[in-house]
């Protein structure tokens, strides 16, 4: 049901994009109001969310340690999985963010199979990693639409991306990967009943939305052949806050644009915020040095305690009988010793 709803919403967006381009008012909304509004929501929303997290204190020092601690000088610590220094934390976070270290941890017992086999959980790692890197590459490539002249590094990226030089126009590897990875992640959500069990509307919606963006983009490049020049002119004008008349734009491009804008506006309200959140996770971004350096809790408050004096008073007779030394005599005066 959740999946169905989210497909319907994405399809409705596509139709709105396609249809909206046919009337002038629709075009204006789609090319002016929507992109700027989406951008504003994205920027304000994203930073507001991150700032709100950052505003909340980290009262306790709770890293999850995944390797040997640094304690005795002659025992080799695990510097990345159980960092004790800032550099260690930096390396751990880098491994987490760039390589998805924790997802990679799913190892299988070797005795189960004689050969090295990629388990389903390694596929999750591979799928997720492939998706994120491909998406990053695609976004960087898109910068060429907003910058004139196109910087050399973007050209370089594109050459790298079309390394295999197949097809005309040449096929970008990242396009293939992003589609395959999205398809896998979606398939996994459907196929694995346990994952399906916990999947919400938002989980499917994010996937279908991304899939919509990717598919419309691929259609424009390889099949419908949108006039890239007019798109670039439009993009440059948007970036310069002097939008030009959008009447020459292809409806498919408008659908793509609307999907992208939806994604941007939806982003701050969704689980996609893990992009910002991962940097702030206190089980990952703290060094395991809580015995070496005191972590301060800004809202630490005094609590009701059962003090030694109360305890001694309560058990005075028993303490005396047992011959355990006391602080105060029977009259309650501190003993001098």
């Amino acid at each position: 049901m959740n999946a169905l709803y989210s497909v319907l919403v994405v399809l409705a967006l596509v139709l709105a994009g396609l249809a909206g381009g046919r009337v002038e008012a629709g075009r204006a909304v789609l090319t002016l109001a929507v992109p700027y509004a989406a951008l504003a929501i994205f920027l304000v929303g994203f930073f507001a969310r991150v700032l709100r997290w950052a505003w909340v204190p980290v009262p306790f020092h709770i890293p999850t340690t995944c390797g040997q601690q640094k304690a005795l000088a002659w025992i080799k610590p695990s510097k990345v999985d159980n960092p004790s220094s800032r550099w260690g934390v930096f390396a751990r976070m880098a491994a987490e963010i760039l390589l998805f270290r924790s997802l990679f941890r799913n190892n299988r017992a070797r005795m189960a199979e004689k050969r090295l086999i990629l388990g389903e959980s390694k596929y999750l790692w591979l799928g997720a990693l492939a998706f994120h890197w491909a998406l990053l590459l695609i976004q960087l490539r898109h910068l060429r639409l907003f910058i004139e002249p196109v910087p050399a590094w973007i050209d370089g990226l594109e050459r790298l991306d079309s390394f295999f030089q197949v097809g005309a126009p040449q096929i970008y590897l990242s396009d293939v990967i992003v589609l395959a990875a999205l398809a896998y992640l979606l398939y996994r959500r459907f196929r694995d009943p346990a994952v399906r069990f916990i999947s919400l509307f938002t989980d499917y919606f994010a996937l279908f939305l991304l899939l919509g963006v990717a598919v419309s983009g691929v259609l424009m490049r390889y099949f419908v052949r949108v006039d890239i020049l007019s798109v670039k002119q439009f993009a440059l004008s948007l970036a310069a806050f002097h939008p030009i008349d959008p009447s020459t734009l292809n409806p498919l491009f408008l659908a793509h644009l609307l999907l992208v804008c939806t994604l941007a506006a939806y982003f701050p309200f969704s689980k996609l915020m893990h992009m910002g959140g991962v940097f702030l996770s206190p089980t990952r971004n703290l060094a395991n040095d809580s015995r070496r350096r005191r972590h301060v809790n800004p809202w630490n408050y005094p609590v009701k305690k059962h003090t030694y004096a109360e305890w001694e008073e309560e058990f005075r007779d028993k303490l005396k009988a047992a011959g355990i030394p006391l602080e105060a005599d029977d009259a309650g005066n501190a003993r001098t010793n």
């Binding site: 017992a109 005795m111 389903e120 694995d192 009943p193 346990a194 069990f197």
Partner: peptide, 16 residues
């Protein structure tokens, strides 16, 4: 429960 079938039947690692 049916949500468990594919894991219980599919995962071959005896410790997982």
């Amino acid at each position: 429960p049916s949500e468990m079938h594919s894991f219980l039947g599919g995962e071959k690692d005896p410790f997982r």
